[in-house]
Amino acid sequence: MGLNCAGKFGKIFLIVLNIVFMLLGLALLIPGILVHVNADYVNEQILPLMSTFTFGGISLAGAAQGLSIALIVVGAIIFLIAIIGILGACCGWRMALIIYATVVLVLWIAQLVIVCLYITMKDKINTEVQEQMLDQLHQNYVADELSTLNTTTSSKISTAWNYLFIQLKCCGVHPVSLLSNDFDETEWRKSNPTMTARIPKSCCGATESNYLVFSNPQCTDSLVTGYYESGCFDTIYNLIDRYNVAFIAIGVITLIVQGVAIASACMIYRQMTSHSQFA
């Protein structure tokens, strides 16, 4: 093909990079198919609560249940793009190189736009999430029960909240306070004004196995000790924020690698075109 040293290096880089991309595509594609066949990956107890949270018209439950399809689609796209890149570099197919560079460039721009939107809208998203969580707790938390242990549970969403508190070891949406907490305005408290409990057992260390017999008045009634002080929004946010540095680093590296891949494809195409003109 008459490539110079830079062109040959770009060709090798493109081949190796796209072999890695092929493996990455398979790594997403195969688990996506397996998860789609056996779609028990979403906890059925928390799913009713996830269904109440919507962003941009899409429910969180729908997004979670569509994860397998997303993995299949993304994995297939990455795999196909990698095949095109390898064919273009190995076989000298200039059209394949053009398609590869164009598709990767579009993905690169899309990723950059998503990152910029997230940075500019992060505070707004966090505020909206908190508001939706608090509204759902106030409107739909009506029972301190677990449906798997008590078939008379009056609300699946209440059960979902209780499972969330147990699994994440958090309580309510905002941090619990001795003076007030998020449960004060719930239907659970309003419909039982003489009830001594101020927070549910799920906030006090109860587990699924001992929920029916669990009792800790110093926690549920007086909030002296034993309750989960962190609100669930902060707990979820901290879980995500813990990996922010890793996400940012991976994102930057990905953008750089994709940029080099685009440059390599363009360089190989240009050298192949120049060589064919003078051949």
Rank of each mutant, 00 (worst) to 15 (best):
N192R: 15
T254D: 08
M121L: 09
C266W: 10
G226C: 07
E131H: 14
A160T: 04
L24G: 11
Q218H: 10
I83S: 05
L112N: 06
S51I: 01
A263L: 15
T235P: 01
C266M: 15
Q65N: 11
A39Q: 12
V106A: 14
T273F: 12
L117R: 07
E128N: 14
A265S: 12
Y100G: 01
V103W: 04
L71D: 00
L223C: 02
I119D: 06
I84T: 01
V260C: 12
A160H: 04
A279G: 14
N4D: 15
D241Q: 14
L87W: 06
K201A: 07
I109M: 11
L67I: 10
H36K: 15
I30A: 08
A82S: 08
A89T: 04
D241R: 15
C5L: 13
M195C: 10
L146R: 04
A265K: 02
I98K: 14
F53V: 07
L29V: 06
I30Q: 07
C232A: 05
L164N: 02
L137A: 08
H138R: 13
S191M: 13
V142A: 15
A279I: 09
N192W: 09
F21I: 06
F79D: 00
F214R: 00
K156V: 06
L149P: 05
L24W: 03
N43R: 03
K122A: 06
K122N: 14
T148Y: 09
D123M: 05
L134T: 13
T254W: 05
N150Q: 13
W161L: 02
E185W: 10
G2A: 09
L223I: 03
T196P: 15
N181I: 01
L67V: 08
V115N: 03
F13M: 06
T159E: 08
N140G: 11
M22G: 07
P31A: 02
S191K: 13
E229D: 12
I83A: 07
G62D: 13
K11H: 07
T220I: 01
V173N: 00
A160C: 11
V42Y: 00
N210V: 05
H275W: 10
V260L: 13
Y227I: 01
K11D: 04
L178T: 11
I83M: 09
I33T: 02
I236F: 06
I15L: 12
R270A: 14
